[in-house]
Structures are given as structure tokens and as C-alpha cells.
Design a protein around this nucleic acid. Structure first.
Lengths: 189, 189
DNA sequence: GTCTATAGTGCGATAGAC
DNA sequence: GTCTATCGCACTATAGAC
């Protein structure tokens, strides 16, 4: 048997969601999480610079998905259409995730102001990366920034809806619908 | 002579920007700010629950302007047109402010992570208030949230441009232009 | 570890406005 | 007199210096 099982970071992330959900974020120590994952406190901090990060390690994959979709998209699309492609690709990141697990994670974040702030920070970083990707395609300012922020908002709204009680549609379907609503914002009502 | 001059909060805010700009946020104590405004440390904390708040007390007026514009707008407009009216009203809040002072304030915020965090929080609250105002007008979800977040983004981008070196146009002109860019995001390019 | 400086709070006293 | 803003003091907590 190996000295360590593979996927230490993943096991830490799962254990963290589990423990935070059961006993609260503040009431859970890094040592507990590490123990539940069969690791030591020291190893926890080698993977995550602070206790909060264990909940946000997934954002990197999201950013890669969003940015690569923009980078690889065909020419001649509108910024909003580019965003549509990016959101579709980002939705793929979530297809293999159990909805209940993502729901639990979001409930933890919603319960703590400092976690909410960290989440805002992550989304702001995501938007900056998207803006840079759009700029590489020749989209000027302020269009690139506006489109990137729109992507962030549409994604957030769509994710919230995906996690809502009784919702069964896929994230990509919901995101497309929310993007359509964004496009319709200038229709009088 | 009166025991207290009127406008204590305003004097504290001015002194704070002055001192933060000169010696840095961390290097300035609440007592110093209070003294510069002819008050005591205790009075500072009666006006502002914490040291950061002295930089953000103005957001309340901004929120009132945005929300009242939506509340008082005529019927039958699109959500984007509603936020156009709101942005115009919000710009009025800034007409009497010296651009250099707002620039100094923003430079202070940009220099400190915890202040940036507070600013994100304030804008998030602003967007929530706008979303609620739009909902009162019968705008459903997710349109209300989307439009409110768009307003927040357009305002942020416009304010940044207003503060840019060499920019001389008024905030309301810039905001109208940025909103026009937002409307044009679905044009292929 | 100690020491210092500062953030932030609770409470009561006081000086004015009305 | 009431009401409110300010003040002064004492307190806890915490971050950094050493």
C-alpha cells in the first residue's frame, strides 16, 4: 500500500465541506479536516494557504474553462455571444458535481461574512481574467470589462437558480436562459 | 462660541481623506482624524462604527439617488432605461465634489485590500437595493437582479473613467456613453 | 513570551439647543 | 425641564515589536 493515497487536496476539500456543514466554519479547525482526510494539519496548509481557500480551490478550473472558451471561439461574434460560449464551457465544470454538495458548499459560504467576501474576490478575479481574454480578441474598453462583468453576473444568477429547491434543469440550460434575459433587458415592460 | 460646530461627520470625512492620503491608511489613527476635525476619538466612533466607514459614508446618498430615481420613473420603460435614469440621478451626487478629492479617496481605497473589500461590499449592497427597487416596479427575476448588477457595473466603469487623467466630461455624460456600450454588447465585431 | 499601540465599546457626565 | 452631541474614562482584544 502506498504511503499516501492520491488526491489529498480533493479529500481535504470533501472533508472540509462535510465538517463545515455539520458543525460550522468557525467551529471546525484545520487539524480536524486534515484528520478526517487522513492527513496532518501541516499538510492541510501545504495545499491551502488558509482555511477559507479549501472552499475555493475549484475556481481555478472555472477560470480556465471561461478563458479557454473565449480564446478558442471563432471570429466575428459579439461580446455577448462570446460570453455565451464561455458560460457553456463553464457549465461543464459542474456536470459531474453532485448538486447537493455544491448546495452545501454555498450554504457554508452564505453563513459567514468573510467567506462571502472571499467569494466576491474570486468572482472579481474571474471577471478580470475574462476581461483580459476579451481584450486579447481585440474587444476594446469599456466593452471588454462590461462583457466580462456581465458574464460573472449571469453565471452567479444561473448558479443560484441551479441550486434552487426543485430545480432540475442543467446549469448550461439555465445559463443560456439567463443570458437571454440579459439580452432582453432593453425591452420595455 | 458653540460647544460644537455643525457638520462633525463631514469634517471627519474630509480630515480622514486628507490624512490617509498624506500618511497612509494604517499610519493614521482615529484619534488623529478626530483631532484634525476638532473632535475626540470617542466622537469619531460615534459617527462611524469603524475606521474604514469614514470613507464610505457617502454611499448612502448614492443609494438614495439610485433608488428614488427608479421609484419615481414613469411607467413602460425597459429595465435598462430605468437604470439609465438612475445613473443620471446618481451622477448628480458627484457634481459638487471636486474630482481631485474623489480621486484621492479612490487612491486610498486602492492601496489597501481591506478597503477594496469594503468597497465591493458597498457596491453589492447598492445592487441589492437597486434590485429591490426594480422588483417593486414589477420587474421579475432574474431581470431585476441582472439590471441592478448592470447598473452597478456601468456606474463603476463610468466613475473610473471620470477619475482618469485628462478626463473632463461630466460623470453623467460618461455614464450615458458606458450604458450605450452595454447596449451594444450584442453587436458582432 | 512581554510590552506597546491602536481598534473598538459601554457608561456616565456635561454642554449646549429647544 | 428634555433631547442630543460631545466628552472622558475604563475596558477588552488584537496585531506587531522586541
Amino acid at each position: 500500500m502506498a504511503r499516501w493515497e492520491p488526491g489529498a487536496a480533493g479529500r481535504l476539500r470533501e472533508a472540509a465541506v462535510e465538517l463545515f456543514a455539520r458543525q460550522g466554519f468557525d467551529q471546525t479547525t484545520a487539524a480536524e479536516i486534515a484528520a478526517a482526510a487522513g492527513l496532518t494539519r501541516r499538510t492541510f496548509f501545504r495545499h491551502f494557504p488558509d482555511k477559507r481557500d479549501v472552499l475555493f480551490a475549484g475556481e481555478a478550473a472555472l477560470e480556465r474553462a471561461l478563458v479557454s472558451a473565449v480564446d478558442e471561439a471563432p471570429e466575428g461574434l459579439s461580446p455577448l455571444s462570446l460570453i455565451g460560449l464561455a458560460l457553456d464551457r463553464a457549465s461543464d465544470v459542474f456536470v459531474d458535481m453532485p448538486r447537493d454538495r455544491v448546495r452545501a458548499r454555498q450554504a457554508i459560504i452564505d453563513s459567514d461574512a468573510s467567506l462571502l467576501e472571499r467569494q466576491r474576490e474570486k468572482y472579481a478575479a474571474l471577471a478580470r481574467a475574462m476581461g483580459a481574454a476579451l481584450a486579447r480578441r481585440g474587444i476594446g474598453e469599456p466593452a471588454a470589462t462590461l462583457a466580462a462583468e456581465c458574464a460573472s453576473v449571469v453565471f452567479t444568477v444561473a448558479l443560484t437558480q441551479w441550486l434552487a429547491d426543485g430545480e432540475s434543469r442543467s446549469l448550461s440550460v439555465i445559463a443560456a436562459e439567463v443570458l437571454a434575459e440579459l439580452r432582453a433587458l432593453d425591452v420595455p415592460r
